[in-house]
Nucleic acid binder design. Structure first.
Length: 224
DNA sequence: TGCCAGGCCGGGT
DNA sequence: ACCCGGCATGGC
């Protein structure tokens, strides 16, 4: 969603969140995360990228694609040891292989038709289901809902909290659900807005708001 | 070279 | 309800 389409904010918090979005968007432009990718690949990527650089995840995804396994039904049939070896470049490969199979097992047991059936639920119910899978926490669940299911849920990650706390907008000890509620309560529930906004936080965190080297001199949010 | 990356779980307080 | 160690590869 382009910032010009934002409806007028109804609170000072909403206004601040609008302004942050406008500034990030004008600086980085639309990010277009996972636009044409199929839902299966997005779910797999969401699990593989847990605490991991996307570059490494891309290597693992390429290996799965090469093996014709970029597909949840196919993944569900692979022995865990083989899967672990395939995704090795993503790091934490043993635990992530187990998590991928936890997900496909739970998915096809509860929803024989797979993702379309899961995504036919109400968002909160689909979220509950995802959170019940061992290895899927709130960020992974929200990523799957937003980027694979096109549900309007806000994805909070380490970058989000770091950016907001560096600019004294929230305390750095804020919980996941608190941070998510901040966005859900003060922004329109729009999938394309939440898609871009999350990706913009990542862009800022990677390029300016790094963990070390707080060289915020050129930060687009400088002074906010 | 060491630090970091688009978290989450399990055991201990 | 928090806190912390473990999980692992590859890039800068």
């Amino acid at each position: 969603m382009v910032p010009e389409e934002l409806p007028p904010p109804r609170s000072t918090t909403g206004e601040a969140l609008h302004n942050i979005y406008r500034e990030l968007y004008s600086h980085f432009g639309p990010q277009g995360w996972w636009p044409g990718d199929i839902a299966d690949e997005i779910c797999i990527g969401a699990i593989l990228t847990q605490n991991t650089n996307w570059q490494n995840v891309a290597k693992a995804i390429a290996r799965l694609k090469q093996a014709e396994l970029l597909d949840l039904r196919a993944v569900s049939r692979i022995p865990v040891e083989i899967l672990a070896d395939l995704i090795r470049p993503a790091g934490y490969y043993n635990i992530k292989a187990r998590r991928l199979l936890n997900f496909t097992d739970a998915l096809f047991n509860s929803f024989p038709e797979g993702l379309p059936q899961l995504f036919s639920l109400e968002m909160d119910q689909a979220r509950e289901f995802l959170l019940s899978v061992k290895g899927i926490g709130p960020e992974t669940a929200d990523s799957i809902l937003l980027y694979a299911g096109s549900f309007p849920t806000f994805v909070v990650d380490a970058y989000t909290v770091r950016v907001l706390s560096r600019h004294d907008f929230v305390d750095e000890t804020i919980t996941y659900e608190e941070a998510r509620a901040l966005f859900m309560e003060h922004l329109p529930h729009d999938t394309s807005l939440f898609n871009e906004y999350h990706a913009l936080f990542v862009a800022l965190g990677k390029n300016y708001c790094k963990k070390r080297l707080p060289s915020c001199d050129r930060c687009p949010l400088k002074g906010r």
